[in-house]
């Protein structure tokens, strides 16, 4: 093998480390910024220093815990509903024979091509008509109704790739369709469902436009909207506390990431997302 034609490994690693350092620097900047005093921040904001001022983080926590709680609730309920509907529907499309199957499937996929720009305003008016504005429903329902679309796209091809024998053996034992779904299909798709769940939770964490529009009562805002509308305005002059808030806002995602990044990476690497 012609080794000289390859990039030398040390060079590749050095370049990657440099790129990752640039990518991650803003995160580090926020992290150590959150633990500095006002004075230290003004003088040495670009690198970490001691002592750590934990007070920033706890006062930031005091003003945003409510948003965090709301987000956990909304994302939790919404994601559970999404996974249930997405996996059951994808299983049906992948494993059952029925009339107008491909036609219905295209009807679902076509929704991925409908831009939010077209639906934002009429969607808002719809929630208004149902009197759902300013309630948790306005935040949860979009996750449960629109959320499964991408999941079905992802899960259907996954279910189709499961060898037929798995299902046929169970069918011999007299298992009916629903049993095939929760006994065989569900356990096999846990990693990819993990990927989907992470995507949806991260999505809910990041969403600020819809909560900003639909939720008038600040007590019900989710984290991104809460940070944007009320928190940053409150502490404009105190950067360390602001960064403390960013840090607290990220902690649940950091935990999620720590425990699930293997699933997420595996899930993404095992499915072909392409057109």
């Amino acid at each position: 093998m012609t080794q000289y034609r390859r990039l030398p490994q040390w060079f590749l690693n050095a370049a990657l480390v440099a790129l990752l350092a640039m990518l991650l620097y803003p995160l580090g900047f926020t992290l150590w910024g959150a633990f500095k005093s006002d004075v230290a921040f003004a003088a040495t904001r670009w690198y970490p220093t001691l002592p750590l001022r934990v007070g920033n983080v706890s006062s930031a926590f005091g003003s945003i815990w409510r948003y965090l709680l709301n987000t956990v609730f909304v994302a939790g309920v919404g994601t559970a509903g999404m996974l249930l509907i997405a996996s059951l529907s994808a299983f049906t499309f992948a494993r059952m024979k029925f009339f107008a199957k491909e036609w219905l499937y295209m009807l679902v996929l076509a929704l991925m091509m409908i831009p939010g720009a077209l639906t934002l305003v009429p969607g808002y008016m719809l929630y208004k008509t149902f009197d759902l504005l300013n309630s948790y429903w306005a935040l949860i329902l979009p996750l449960v109704t629109g959320g499964p679309i991408f999941g079905i796209f992802l899960l259907r091809s996954f279910f189709e790739s499961i060898p037929k024998d798995y299902f046929e053996a169970a069918q011999m034992d007299g298992a009916h369709d629903f049993k095939l779904y929760y006994r065989i299909a569900l356990p096999l798709c846990i990693p990819i469902m993990g990927t989907l769940a992470i995507m949806q939770i991260v999505g809910a964490w990041n969403e600020y436009l819809w909560p900003m529009i639909t939720i008038a009562d600040h007590e019900k805002l989710t984290i991104a909207a809460g940070l944007l509308i009320s928190f940053t305005g409150q502490y404009t002059s105190n950067m360390p506390v602001t960064f403390g808030g960013y840090l607290v806002a990220s902690v649940p995602l950091i935990l999620l990431f720590t425990f699930t990044n293997r699933y997420y990476v595996q899930g993404l690497l095992s499915t072909a997302i392409k057109l």
Binding site: L84, I85, L88, S89, F91, T92, M96, L104, V108, L111, I114, L118, T119, V121, P122, G123, M125, L126, L141, P142, V144, T145, G146, P148, I149, I152, D177, F178, Y181
Partner: peptide, 20 residues
Amino acid sequence: FLSPLFLGLILFCYYPPVSG
């Protein structure tokens, strides 16, 4: 099996673009 999906889709995903 598909009814929960389509119930949500019709109301919250197909109706808004048409209404728009």
